[in-house]
């Protein structure tokens, strides 16, 4: 499969001297679901801001599709990569939901007819058509999150980045957001999320990248989430389901469940075998 994001030897330091990234190398394939994990301050958000050209590489290279991220290409890169920020209040500022969702498409210079079509379709995708004329400050946190996602979807980017998408969401909000992420993935979008929620990563992602102190500590499928060395080094925790099965005696079945679905099927197998 083709890479849509390539990062090579990326270093980045903030003005006050903090070195946030210390030589990141990473490939993200088209139409993949990637979870970037790491403790607070590991450099996840700094890395994500490079994908959207909000941070420009100081040393090293970032390629988005066929473009090298630079001052020259930043505007085109932003039409290809959408970014949903952690706090929707940082992103939503217009007087109505509809106006806010149209902000990106208007900046792209699209015709008003096209803007209307895109806004309606984005509102439909996150199921908030009924909120279109409401003022964002009257909405719940979960609804604001959906508005923020719609604002990015209306730009129709191929790659969508979410910074801590599930932070502060209630279970219903989380379920709704998971459904939206699933729909987007089915549409062929590449989804990258930064999180420290290992359960979510195990449940949802097809590629895991663990970052620690500005470097990629490990990358691979969700199997790396039960590697004690990686989990300890990155100050993470095992997925809840894995923690339960780690405490059970070995049964000769080397399959280690990490999601509820996998755990249920393993328990059924054990019951069948014992009967």
């Amino acid at each position: 499969m083709v890479n849509c994001i390539e990062v090579r030897d990326l270093f980045f330091s903030y003005e006050e001297g903090t070195q946030a990234l210390k030589g990141i190398n990473l490939d993200i394939k088209k139409n993949s679901r990637v979870a970037i994990l790491g403790p607070n301050g590991a450099g996840k958000s700094t890395l994500l801001l490079h994908f959207n050209a909000l941070n420009l590489p100081q040393t090293g290279k970032v390629r988005v599709e066929d473009l090298e991220v630079s001052k020259k290409t930043e505007k085109i890169v932003r039409t290809k990569v959408g970014m949903v920020f952690q706090d929707p209040d940082d992103q939503i500022f217009s007087m109505t939901v509809r106006e806010d969702v149209s902000f990106g498409p208007l900046n792209m210079g699209l015709s008003s007819e096209e803007v209307v079509v895109r806004v309606e379709s984005a509102l439909r995708a996150v199921r908030i058509e009924d909120l279109a004329d409401k003022a964002p400050y009257h909405l719940s946190y979960g609804q604001k999150k959906r508005v923020a996602i719609a604002g990015v979807l209306a730009m129709r980017p191929d790659i969508i980045i979410f910074d801590e998408p599930f932070a502060y969401l209630d279970p219903r909000g989380k379920k709704g957001l998971l459904q939206i992420l699933g729909d987007l993935s089915e549409e062929g979008k590449t989804i990258v999320i930064a999180t420290h929620d290992v359960d979510l990563a195990a449940e949802w992602a097809d590629k895991i990248v663990v970052i620690q102190e500005g470097k990629v500590l490990a990358e691979g499928d969700k199997g790396i989430l039960i590697d004690p060395y990686i989990i300890e080094q990155a100050d993470l925790d095992f997925p809840t389901v894995a923690k339960i099965f780690k405490e059970l005696p070995e049964d000769g079945d080397f399959f280690f469940p990490m999601t509820i679905e996998e755990a249920v099927s393993k328990i059924k197998r054990i019951i069948r075998r014992n009967n």
């Binding site: 909000l54 959408g82 920020f85 992103q91 990106g104 900046n107 792209m108 008003s112 604002g151 730009m155």
Partner: peptide, 20 residues
């Protein structure tokens, strides 16, 4: 700063977006 970043991320370049 975060609001400005979020605006840039949606293609803001300092122009008026109220063309309509």
């Amino acid at each position: 700063e975060r609001v400005y970043f979020a605006m840039l991320a949606r293609g803001y370049g300092g122009e008026s977006y109220g063309k309509e």
